[in-house]
Simulated scan of single mutants.
Amino acid sequence: MRIVVADDSVLLREGLHLLLAEAGHEVVASVGDGPATVAAVLEHRPDLALVDVRMPPSHTDEGLRAAVEIRRSWPGARVLVLSQYVELSYADDLFAAGEGGVGYLLKDRVSDVDDFLAALQTVAAGGTALDPLVVRQLMGQAGARRDDPLAALTPREREVLALMAEGRSNAAVAEQMTVTLGAVEKHSQRIFAKLGLLPDDAQHRRVLAVLRYLRAGA
């Protein structure tokens, strides 16, 4: 893949550059602030943009705002945001457009190279990838809301949907839950039906279900 890396830490940028190169990817641009991120992505049109949430000049949500601006200017952009901490409002803004091709991971996740690279592939392919810690916090918020649109889901179905939100395939969900692939597929079909998602492309319905889940918790 062709990737733009955006982080104000030179060391982290260089580390990501090496990691991605070893995995066979090409870093087409490496930048350190929000405006440069937007410019680089719109110029190079990469397969994926890897963006830190907190960058100059504000060191608050500069990277997130850059990611949102990129998606507005180029709806097909694939963006994976990295953050040091769980910021649920950031997740809400990032997924608000209601489309796939986005992810939100904590920087600690990068240390698990295989999972990190798998998340990159998932987002680049138009799916979603959400850090498990963020998923748990969103699930807690959703469960506490009276108008929770996921209220009709059983605890088992919520568990399946939470694992989907992490970017896991049906096979990976089955392995994590120690159930058969057929059981996961049945749970998935029930989730789609309860959320009112009509038969369509399977990946598309997965993305819509995950996005509805994220909006419920954020």
Results as ranks from 00 to 15, higher is better:
36 A>E: 14
187 H>N: 14
147 D>C: 11
30 S>C: 11
81 V>G: 11
154 T>W: 03
172 A>T: 03
62 E>K: 04
177 M>K: 14
122 T>V: 09
147 D>I: 08
28 V>A: 03
195 L>V: 05
18 L>A: 15
83 S>C: 10
120 L>P: 01
207 V>Q: 05
158 R>C: 04
195 L>T: 03
87 E>N: 15
27 V>Y: 02
118 A>T: 11
95 F>M: 08
216 A>N: 12
95 F>E: 02
51 V>L: 14
116 F>P: 13
199 P>N: 14
60 T>P: 01
8 D>P: 13
185 E>P: 05
37 T>D: 11
110 V>I: 15
180 T>P: 08
13 R>I: 12
200 D>I: 00
93 D>G: 04
73 S>M: 06
149 P>W: 05
180 T>V: 04
119 A>K: 08
197 L>N: 10
38 V>T: 07
35 P>S: 05
36 A>M: 10
57 P>R: 10
36 A>F: 05
100 G>A: 01
111 S>E: 10
217 G>S: 04
55 M>D: 01
27 V>I: 07
184 V>C: 04
123 V>A: 07
142 A>V: 00
201 D>I: 03
159 E>A: 12
157 E>Q: 15
82 L>Q: 06
15 G>N: 09
17 H>D: 14
63 G>N: 00
15 G>W: 00
5 V>W: 12
8 D>W: 06
197 L>M: 07
149 P>Q: 13
107 K>T: 01
129 A>M: 02
134 V>C: 08
100 G>Y: 00
117 L>V: 02
133 L>H: 06
19 L>G: 12
75 P>I: 02
74 W>K: 11
4 V>Y: 05
214 L>D: 05
40 A>I: 09
57 P>T: 06
46 P>Q: 09
136 R>D: 08
210 V>I: 11
89 S>I: 03
207 V>R: 06
123 V>C: 05
34 G>L: 09
134 V>N: 14
92 D>K: 04
120 L>H: 00
171 A>S: 11
111 S>N: 09
187 H>E: 12
179 V>G: 08
98 G>N: 09
118 A>W: 06
213 Y>H: 07
140 G>K: 03
195 L>K: 06
141 Q>H: 12
102 V>A: 15
216 A>K: 14
23 A>Y: 00
122 T>P: 01
